[in-house]
């Protein structure tokens, strides 16, 4: 005779909540992916405007990730390794771009990049244009993606015991030598994950970009334009291709995260 297993009601609650959440996320996406015909998808993939907008999305997001890597890595290291007055305040500043409504980000950037501001005038004098330019898009995407990079890499640095760095320095390595021989080899994976997070966040940005640079058109702006101009049927295939790209990026993220845990 086998004993009857008793399952706690909380487990049932947890399982049902999980099913609802998964369905909530997947159902609209699956519907959207399933609705365009295969012929529409192929035709969209051949559309030069679509290709160029997706490429621009990837290029500008990739540049945002690269800038985040260059400037965010030393900053994340400082936050992870040093305690200083006002550190909590600085950390909350980093999170600001996550909380601010996206159009407000666009307006904030335009307000310093315009001709009425000394910074805008200075940039203009050396030929840097923000409004309606690829540079402007990269600036916006860096603004929104940077917190994801800094927070991920900071956690990566924090996971490395500082004693390893102490030992390295006692053996004769400088701070720079220690960073490149000990810290970087142990933290590079979190940097890759941070760059993927930053890119993924940047690819999905619309609200801030549409204020700063409607043209040249990145993929989310093109989806919006096709939706308002031609309706759902013409915007869906572009959205599907963008989702595939995002899915690929997040798949990479998961692979790196799992390897890190192992």
């Amino acid at each position: 005779m086998t004993a009857k297993k008793h399952t706690d009601p909380f487990i049932w609650l947890a399982v049902s909540s999980s099913i609802i959440i998964i369905a909530f996320i997947l159902f609209p996406l699956i519907e959207m992916v399933a609705q365009p015909t295969f012929a529409d998808l192929i035709a969209t993939a051949k559309d030069k405007e679509v290709i160029s907008s997706i490429w621009l999305s990837l290029y500008t997001s990739g540049m945002a990730a690269l800038i985040s890597f260059l400037f965010g890595t030393p900053f994340a290291y400082l936050l992870a390794r040093k305690n200083f007055w006002g550190k909590n305040f600085i950390e909350s500043i980093i999170d600001l771009p996550i909380m601010i409504p996206h159009p407000v980000v666009g307006i904030a950037i335009l307000s310093i990049a315009g001709q009425n501001h000394w910074l805008g005038q200075a940039m203009s004098s050396i030929g840097i244009r923000i409004m309606g330019s690829v540079t402007g898009i990269i600036v916006v995407l860096t603004f929104v993606g940077l917190p994801f990079y800094v927070n991920t890499v900071k956690a990566g640095f924090e996971a490395i015991p500082s004693r390893l760095e102490n030992v390295s320095r006692s053996l004769g390595a400088s701070i720079t030598g220690t960073f490149f021989r000990v810290t970087f080899p142990l933290a590079w994976r979190s940097m890759v994950v941070g760059m993927i997070m930053c890119t993924a966040r940047a690819v999905s940005e619309f609200g801030a970009v549409v204020i700063v640079a409607y043209h040249p058109m990145i993929a989310p702006v093109m989806i919006y334009e096709r939706f308002t101009a031609y309706g759902l049927k013409y915007s869906q295939p572009v959205a599907v291709w963008l989702i595939i790209v995002c899915l690929f990026l997040f798949l990479l993220l998961r692979i790196f995260s799992v390897q890190k845990k192992n």
Binding site: L164, V167, S168, R169, R181
Partner: peptide, 29 residues
């Protein structure tokens, strides 16, 4: 700075460099 003091240290938790082999750990400095 620590690198100019000519002091060796061994911690309780060993603090070995996990990305290096035994030999590369020993010859690190």
């Amino acid at each position: 700075p620590p690198e100019k003091r000519d002091i060796g240290i061994v911690y309780q938790d060993h603090a070995l460099f996990p990305h290096l082999t035994v030999y590369k750990n020993i010859t690190y400095g």
